[in-house]
Computed example of a mutant assay.
Amino acid sequence: MNRKLKLIWDFKGPVSQKTAEHHCIHLKEFATIEKLHFYEINFTVLSEMHTIAFIIVDEIDMKTYRDALKPHRGQLA
């Protein structure tokens, strides 16, 4: 079984939530255009000044997403 990875983008400041929500739209568009599989695209509000956008993908697809979209960090999902 292939491991799932969570690729994460951090957004900070008073409009971090709106920015993260908008970033999720672009993540979905990229996956659709490139016909790439993903498990989930979403955002999480960590505080009123810090929100993350993320995509959960199979480890085998990670390099494609990473090289094209430059996530800030990643972790096992």
Results as ranks from 00 to 15, higher is better:
F30H: 08
D67W: 15
D10L: 10
K6S: 02
K4N: 06
E40Q: 14
L27V: 04
A68M: 15
I41W: 01
T51G: 08
A53C: 09
I52T: 08
I60L: 11
I52W: 06
K35V: 07
I8F: 04
I33W: 13
I8E: 01
H26Y: 14
W9T: 04
D61Q: 06
I41P: 03
M62T: 11
V57Y: 03
M1W: 06
D10R: 09
K35E: 12
K12R: 14
F54I: 02
Q17E: 14
K4I: 00
N42R: 11
K70C: 11
S47Q: 13
I41Y: 03
P14C: 08
T19I: 12
I55T: 05
E34D: 08
L36R: 01
A68R: 15
H50C: 00
D67H: 15
K6P: 04
D61P: 02
S16I: 04
K63D: 15
L7F: 03
I52D: 01
D58C: 04
T64R: 12
Q75T: 10
E21R: 03
W9R: 01
V15F: 11
P71Y: 02
H26G: 04
H26C: 05
P14I: 08
K18A: 10
W9M: 05
P71K: 02
V57H: 06
K12M: 11
H50K: 11
F43P: 01
Y39H: 10
L27R: 00
L76R: 09
V45I: 15
E29A: 13
D61T: 03
M1H: 07
F54G: 03
M62F: 13
T51A: 10
R3L: 12
K28E: 08
H22R: 12
F54K: 00
P14G: 08
G13N: 06
D67P: 12
M49D: 15
E29Y: 15
